[in-house]
Amino acid sequence: MSISDQGMEHLKTLARLKLGDEETQALKDDLNKILAYFEQIRDLDTEGVEELARPIDSFNVFREDILEQGLTQQEALALATEAEEGFFKVPRTIDTD
């Protein structure tokens, strides 16, 4: 399998990355080279093998719901990219065109 030019455009949208034409081409070549290397595991027989997503078995972890002092609104918003009157401020999300 390899990634086409069209596939690359789809991938850029999925990954939310704006890239120039030159870099898009270079990355497409890189990714296809890396994918070719990954082919080795696709040939491996894994019939009946269970996926291992986490190295150590763990289950839902619960704790008592105890009220504690967290960050104040001011402390949290000090990290904001843009804030106004106690709110995060972001670019418009709905296209009005």
Partner: peptide
């Protein structure tokens, strides 16, 4: 980020990410 998005994307998940997790078990 692009590689990972590809490995998780519809149609490729089983062939790549899922397969990688099985190899991880082996």
């Amino acid at each position: 980020v692009l590689m990972g998005s590809y490995a998780l994307s519809a149609g490729y998940y089983d062939a790549y990410y899922g397969k990688a997790l099985k190899v991880r078990r082996l």
